[in-house]
Write a protein that binds this DNA or RNA. Structure first.
Length: 550
RNA sequence: GGCCAGUUGGUGAAGUGGCUUAACACACUGCCCUUUCACGGCAGCAUUCACGGAUUCGAAUUCCGUACUGGUCACCA
């Protein structure tokens, strides 16, 4: 009995070997400095902010240096797999405009380094595992769950490091005959990597974000192939896939740092060049005094669907992530206002190495700026798309009269210093409902009177205004009318004069304007009143003033 | 508990031995501008970089220790 015999016993059907696959997937033809990155989500039916975060870095790195960005479906955990999960990831990437160059979806494959789906790569993994068995660096392990638990318990009790290594690696010393015999008798087994590392020896690992790290060598005989479906574990799939697909830069979350030693040993054993690693900080959240990883269970904002539902422009999310990716991004962007985020040069070294807090306030601010710079047509279209999915009410209003809707949106827009009052599309309704008579009528509202609250005075102001001073010719004459109205009723029309001689007046033109505003919209804070009045027109204004309680 | 990483204001952070009386942005507060709200402008907001010690003429920046926080220790990725 030889290693070769054992390998053949375990993988009787594997005919191709490593060399065959390396021929089939030759080294990529890259120009100097070009990179190959990948986003490798597992299809759990959920698109995490962190996945987008990493994909964005992948994408930017490729935009910066040239090369290929691909998507690999890491579906080896068949228990957790959810139908349509990769579609969700792809759709999201598409929405955010960070499409991979190579991918596989609905049976359609783009790119020549596929399959881009791990369950379809089983044979390939088997060839690599077979090789490992042949050279005596992998072996079948027959330990049961109970045995493993017991081992761990003993280790904890004896205060030694837990894990399947050294003398605790029970199955590594089984003779080939014993192994063959057990396999033949149908005992379930996994394949473990036979480590030659020494935990007490250190090696230098250079992470592109964290810098040089001194890590202990791996000495664990970790599992590389599962028993039930014969699929590889992450560690092994990482080795095979990233080698064959030619990944130059692996961008993944910091939670992978503890397994780096395993990966390095694996690459070394095969004599493959390991990719460069960018371990990104985790996106964290603060809850009271506790800081923790964004959790998909507890935090709605961990899911990309959250941002879609609220109606944040995708660019706002991207820009806010950019500020986390490299904190000099904003400064760069204000200096280069015509550039897009794709023109920015990403530097892993400048990335913060502590957890990144995703700040929704910051997002809102960025989003307000982006929305304020949209043209009325853009905003109409974007908000319509959103409303079609999430707000029938708004959708109906837009469809009723798109021009009128754009007119409302255009108040204090398309000017040098546009108004910034919308952070997400679900806020639009709050800002425009009073511009529609039927909605206004039905809307539950309290008039936000400020200063002047007497009903008689309010009625006096509105009726005098409509009778004698109403004018919509242009903004200047409109405002002159309000000034004259103010004076005729004993209010100051000149603010400076008012401030100096308050006792001479009942109030100022500001108070009068507020009355006209609140009486018309019920709100004390609205955009420019002249434009609102122009859109509404005299008749409707008059009606609203008349319908006020006497 | 072992291993690894991190710790600068309310938040994200810049900063790699003197140019830092700690940049920039968000948030907050005040003032100015203004018919309101906003926008914009100005100003304020860490005498100090988790704590203790060491090195140095000089440290947020180097070293050691402590504390705290996070990650990880699966036939999950």
């Amino acid at each position: 009995m030889t290693n070769q015999d054992l390998a053949n016993l375990i993988f009787p059907k594997v005919s191709s070997n490593i060399l065959d696959y390396e021929k089939k997937y030759p080294k990529r033809n890259l120009k100097e400095g070009e990179v190959v990155t990948r986003v490798a989500p597992s299809p759990t039916g959920y698109m995490h902010l962190g996945t987008l975060f990493q994909a964005l870095i992948d994408y930017i790195l490729v935009k910066n240096r040239g090369g290929v960005f691909y998507l690999r479906n890491e579906d080896t955990d068949t228990k957790r797999e959810v139908d349509g999960a990769i579609k969700l990831v792809m759709d999201t990437l598409e929405e955010y405009n960070i499409m991979p160059d190579e991918y596989e979806i609905d049976g359609k494959t783009i790119g020549s380094y596929g399959p881009y789906r791990q369950t379809k790569r089983k044979e390939i993994y088997h060839a690599f595992i077979k090789y490992l068995i042949e050279i005596g660096r992998a072996y079948p392990c027959f330990c049961t769950k109970e045995e493993l638990d017991e081992r761990k318990k003993q280790q904890e009790k004896n205060k030694v490091r837990t894990g399947y290594y050294g003398k605790y690696a029970k199955c590594r010393n089984l003779s080939l005959e014993e192994q063959a015999q057990k396999i033949k008798s149908g005992i379930p087994y996994v394949i473990r990597f036979k480590s030659e590392g020494d935990f007490n020896k250190k090696f230098i690992f250079n992470d592109l974000v964290k810098g040089k790290l001194e890590l202990s060598e791996n000495d664990e005989d970790f599992i590389i192939m599962k028993s039930s479906d014969k699929l590889p574990t992450y560690h092994f799939a990482h080795l095979v896939d990233d080698h064959l697909m030619g990944t130059t830069h692996v961008i993944r979350g910091e939670e992978w740092l503890p397994s780096v030693a395993k990966h390095i040993e694996l690459f070394k054993t095969f004599g493959f060049k390991a990719p460069k690693y960018i371990h990104t900080p985790l996106i964290i959240k603060k809850e009271g005094n506790i800081t923790r990883k964004l959790s998909k269970r507890k935090d709605p904002e961990a899911a990309m669907s959250y941002y879609k539902e609220c109606g944040y422009p995708t660019l706002a999310i991207i820009e806010s992530l950019m500020t986390i990716i490299n904190s000099n991004y904003e400064e760069w962007h204000t200096k280069n206002p015509t550039c897009t985020y794709l023109d920015f040069t990403y530097s892993p070294k400048k990335m913060s190495s502590s957890g990144a807090l995703y700040d929704l306030d910051k997002l809102k601010n960025i989003s307000k700026n982006i929305i304020s710079k949209m043209t009325k047509e853009e905003l109409m279209e974007e908000s319509f798309k959103w409303a079609s999915l999430y707000s029938k009410e708004l959708k109906d209003l837009i469809e009723r009269d798109k021009d009128y809707y754009m007119g409302i949106l255009n108040i204090e827009r398309e000017q040098k210093k546009p108004r910034k009052d919308i952070a997400k599309y679900d806020e639009i309704m709050d800002n425009i409902w009073y511009m529609y008579d039927d909605v206004y009528k039905e809307h539950e509202k309290t008039y936000e009177w400020v200063g002047i609250t007497s009903k008689e005075e309010i009625n006096l102001i509105t009726s005098t205004y409509m009778d004698k001073y109403f004018c919509l010719k242009d903004k200047e004459s409109w405002f002159n009318g309000i000034k004259e109205l103010s004076e005729s009723l004993g209010y100051a029309s000149n603010m400076k004069d008012y401030k100096e001689n308050k006792e001479n007046y009942k109030g100022s033109v500001a108070d009068v304007s507020t009355v006209l505003r609140v009486a018309l919209t019920s709100k004390s804070t609205t955009p420019d009143l002249y434009e609102i009045m122009t859109l509404l027109g005299k008749e409707r204004i008059e009606k609203r003033y008349q319908s006020l309680e006497k």
